[in-house]
Design a protein around this nucleic acid. Structure first.
Lengths: 114, 114
DNA sequence: ACAAGGTACCGAGTGTCGCAAGGTACTTCA
DNA sequence: TGAAGTACCTTGCGACACTCGGTACCTTGT
């Protein structure tokens, strides 16, 4: 893929934030893969493809930031619901405190560049 | 390294933005490696170590976003000055237009998570 | 009954890029 | 002459978003 393709700029931007975006979405209530993909995908800026999501969710599970339960679907195969743990909430708060000054720093530099 | 270490969160955040931060700094005037490192390093949020910078500058040069000239230093080895090209300025503008909605999207999700 | 299509989950392989550590070279000054 | 400061550069590594491909479940139409 071309390195100066705009898509790849977004790809790089999403690194490190995507998993916290998922956490933030889960903070509003438990959800399952396809729903998360649709929700974050509705803002095409935040989320690329579904193939990204499942490895990410596995990572969150391994870190015990989410706990999962299988639940039957009204129509279709069962869904794996992901619920934030206390550790997950703490990680999300920690991220928010890192994100804030970072975003401020980038904004300041960008503003100075015009 | 611990995955929930705060340093590594920043490392991931910097991906994709760091090179545009350098471009933004260069938009204020040509500069050389050590000076860029000091300038961005003064905000410890944006910049980690010097080892990151030179590969990054090489990348910018290869994409013709900067042009370099060697100039003698008042004291010490010669410095390689990096100046933004028109292409570099265009890339910076394009990034600013990608960054804006991205940052807005993350902010919105983070705000909704409390 | 059984094929087709929608829903849902998952994994292997790839490439990019920030980082740590280590290395080279030039200049000045004691 | 050797130590200290400045400046540039490379190697090896790890994290993670992405692409592509695959499996399984359930409903519906014929």
């Amino acid at each position: 893929m071309e390195p100066d393709d705009e898509g790849s700029v977004l790809t790089q931007l999403r690194r490190g934030t995507l998993e916290y975006c998922v956490l933030a979405y889960l903070a509003q209530g438990p959800s399952y893969g396809q729903d998360i993909a649709r929700a974050l995908g509705s803002d095409p800026v935040l989320f690329g493809s579904e193939g990204t999501l499942y490895p990410l969710l596995t990572r969150l599970r391994r870190r015990r930031w989410v706990e999962t339960t299988w639940q039957p679907s009204p129509a279709g195969p069962p869904r794996r619901y992901h619920a934030l743990t206390d550790e997950g909430r703490a990680a999300l708060r920690a991220f928010a405190q890192t994100w804030e000054p970072f975003r401020a720093g980038v904004d300041r530099l960008m503003k100075g560049a015009q």
